[in-house]
């Protein structure tokens, strides 16, 4: 298969190196245990990878199809990695599963009671982050969307409409 050209092997080697650098070294560093650090590690890498490959394909040093295939592979790898990282770090549902695993079976009401406070903390935390990005404005418990926030909310509502997601949580 033509994909096994020198550029493809170099690209795949780079992706393996990117993962190994994290697995054997960077994951122990404080920066890479924070969301912003791990996000930038992938975002900067994917952007530069795409820039180098697509530029090389424009000056016909690299086959354009192979370049796009490699960029897509980096995208698949990075999204999978970041999803797993995020899920294992702070997912609310995983928190509920852990609570059940670490104690006896309990009623739904008891579980709701135990987890509600964390839900409130999560909401406050996220709204603070969103306000830092200029997506919401407000104070204490009264928040409203900025223009940017309204645009973002419309996209989310369109996705929910597309997938018929009525009961959001």
């Amino acid at each position: 298969m033509n994909l096994a050209g020198a550029e493809t092997l170099t690209g795949i080697t780079y992706l393996i190196f990117h993962f190994c650098a994290y697995a054997f070294w960077l994951r122990r560093k404080d920066l890479f245990q924070r969301e912003i650090g791990i996000f930038l590690y992938h975002f900067v890498s994917a952007t530069m990878f795409a820039f180098v490959l697509l530029s090389a394909s424009l000056i016909q040093q690299v086959d354009a199809a192979a370049a796009v295939a490699l960029v897509a592979t980096h995208g698949i790898y990075s999204i999978s990695f970041l999803e797993l990282w995020s899920l294992s770090e702070g997912s609310y549902s995983i928190g509920i599963l852990n609570e059940l695993a670490s104690g006896p079976a309990r009623s739904k009401a008891a579980l709701i009671d135990a987890r509600s406070q964390i839900g409130s903390t999560k909401k406050a935390n996220r709204l603070q982050i969103l306000s830092r990005f200029g997506i919401v404005i407000g104070e204490e418990d009264c928040w409203r969307l900025t223009t940017r926030g309204r645009y973002l909310a419309s996209v989310l509502q369109a996705l929910n409409w597309l997938t018929v997601t009525k009961q959001t949580g």
Binding site: I79, L127, L130, L145, A153, L156, T163, T168, G169
Partner: peptide
């Protein structure tokens, strides 16, 4: 898939949709 699961289940997305 990432985007639709984010829109459905994430606390951030739900806050935005409720506010809108």
């Amino acid at each position: 898939v990432f985007l639709i699961t984010f829109a459905m289940a994430s606390v951030t997305a739900n806050c935005l949709v409720r506010l809108s």
